[in-house]
Design a protein around this nucleic acid. Structure first.
Lengths: 244, 244
DNA sequence: CGTGTTCTTGAGAGTAATCAAATAGAGTGG
DNA sequence: CCACTCTATTTGATTACTCTCAAGAACACG
């Protein structure tokens, strides 16, 4: 508990010294990358891979419209979906450093994205520590999301797991200015969600029925509706602070 | 597959433009942080939390000796271990931006670490884009490790899952200059490993027996020995490239 | 109208959790 | 030095949950 050696760096000073700003500031900074860098508007068909495993990546993408997901296919053919990506997300920046992106990235719907050369981004980063901090923020946020996903898959029962995923998607969409507090358009199939939750499609279908029968939420016809957010949050043990 | 619009930014130019350097270069840069920043040598007792959930973090830690783990405790009391940390790892940097660290960090053994004020680190980052890239590298690497962990827990059978974790630890220790190709000191309990693998201690114990009976590996008395690395790598579907 | 995909439900099999208990070892205090 | 405690490991028996296999229903698309 003893945490300080006298108040040279008081907490308020600390806050000023650090680049600590709000979610929306970072989000805005990411969204404004195209104002400072040459980008290239691209459209991807549903089902097309934006980034393919092993492919030497030269580009990152700022998603503008549509959904995508990052995933891995294992030896036995099973798929693990790592994360779903929505408009406003910056994907593929790991290529700034690691060269080969280890995750595949697939368009779930028709997608509009701005292609950013990682070389250009790298140059811009050098002189612009504000941009660098935004990229770092984006990386930390992705890590926090994957960490939550690991906790979800590792330690929550299927019904709680599903509740958590949908609540997270709802929060992220809200922060991106999409959907409402209690409903959102969700272009995922049951098979996609099941592969994210590490369940079979059959079992996820039964879980959805349970959630419906509890009057907690519904998911059909490309739309998620929260019937009882309180109940859902309780089921999921959900705290959205990691998203902000 | 069509990937380029003529070779203005050829791949070799690209490589120079980016900060793409080897693992060891980044690792060295992280290890040299104390040369450029004031740090504070600290020792933690086994079982002590270096970082506690919700605590307002002012410090990051560069681990010098001993093992730690980051973890979360869920409502029902179950624990998910997110990652094990070994000497050379930089932990707690998420606090540069997110303020509240969401993971707890606990010393598994007696630990020696260098405490780094995130304020100091933040200031240093501004003028030093090389340091910034090293921090970014560290963040990406952590994300890659958590992602592999998610795939492990989500889609691999317990025996393959265990094999993967031990191979990863072996590789990371090797890269940090510890252990040999076929054995390393491993101060974890079965209970800790089980909580990382999302298995019960009882079941992990049976998995260990299977691995022993397959003559693949052993883990007892604080020591892991790979008896048949080929067999293990095949079991785990292991590719160490995400660690480099 | 046929084809393919997604969703839904049923029945049975198999795996990991739970419950229970014995063993072993380290550390403590009398 | 020995009894005692606490933790870690190991094994067995039973339960429960999720997967697998199978098939039908709903719907979109050409």
């Amino acid at each position: 508990m003893p945490e300080d050696k006298a108040g040279v760096s008081s907490s308020s000073t600390g806050r000023n010294l650090r680049y600590l700003v709000s979610h929306s500031t970072y989000l805005a900074a990411i969204g404004k990358i195209p104002d400072t860098l040459p980008t290239h508007k691209r459209t991807f068909m549903k089902g097309h891979d934006l980034i393919h495993e092993g492919q030497r990546g030269q580009n990152a993408y700022l998603l503008r419209d549509g959904w995508a997901c990052s995933y891995r296919i294992l030896h036995d053919g099973t798929r693990q979906i790592i994360n779903f990506h929505i408009p406003g997300d910056l994907v593929g920046i790991r290529r700034l450093i690691t060269f080969a992106s280890d995750d595949n990235l697939c368009a779930i719907t028709r997608m509009e994205a701005e292609e950013i050369s990682v070389d250009d981004l790298s140059i811009a980063l050098r002189g612009n520590s504000c941009l660098a901090m935004s990229i770092l923020w984006s990386a930390f946020r992705d890590e926090a999301i994957v960490t939550q996903h690991l906790i979800d898959v590792g330690r929550r029962h299927p019904i709680n797991r599903a509740a958590h995923l949908f609540l997270e998607l709802g929060s992220r969409l809200n922060l991106a200015g999409l959907g409402t507090k209690t409903a959102f358009e969700c272009p995922l199939t049951q098979s996609l969600v099941a592969d994210a939750l590490s369940l079979t499609t059959v079992h996820f279908n039964r879980v959805l029925r349970q959630l419906r029968e509890l009057n907690a939420m519904t998911f059909h016809d490309g739309r998620v509706a929260f019937l009882d957010s309180r109940k859902l949050e309780h089921l999921a043990d959900f705290d959205s602070s990691y998203l902000r």
